[in-house]
């Protein structure tokens, strides 16, 4: 009969809890180091990384265009650019990991990298 809790059930429950603790520890160890979101700028095939917690202004030059990037209150945006389409300026602020600003004419990309947070939807 399968009506009462058996030894096998205890093994399953213990196994699940052990797995939970293991996965928790695996994710805890890297998060002990710095996981704050950072801005990664790719310009002239070079990659630069800035923390977004510090406000600053960066001037980038590539392929004859000049972009002025501002980091402000944990977000980043292109304040001005002399590229023809200005898509990078119009993209606005990026503040979440995975968000990206790309300026095609100058070949400059800005990307926020770091821990992902939040969720988009809940599935059933």
């Amino acid at each position: 009969m399968k009506d009462r809790i058996k030894a096998g059930d205890i093994v399953i429950i213990a196994g699940v809890i052990l797995l939970a603790v293991t996965v928790f520890l695996l994710f805890l160890i890297p998060s002990l180091s710095d996981t704050a979101a950072v801005l990664e700028i790719s310009c002239n095939n070079e990659k630069m990384v800035y923390t977004v917690s510090e406000n600053r202004e960066i001037v980038l030059e590539s392929k004859g265009y000049t972009l002025r990037v501002c980091i402000e209150d944990g977000s980043a945006y292109v304040a001005s650019s002399d590229c023809p389409d200005k898509t990078c300026v119009h993209t606005g602020r990026i503040d979440r990991p995975g968000k990206l600003i790309a300026c095609v004419p100058s070949g400059i990309t800005l990307r926020i990298i770091g821990e992902e947070d939040g969720y988009d939807f809940v599935a059933g």
Partner: peptide
């Protein structure tokens, strides 16, 4: 394959996990 070594409690926990 565990047969009667597990009850519906254990099956449910394993399936949920």
């Amino acid at each position: 394959f565990f047969g009667d070594k597990v009850s519906y409690y254990g099956i449910s926990v394993l399936c949920a996990a």
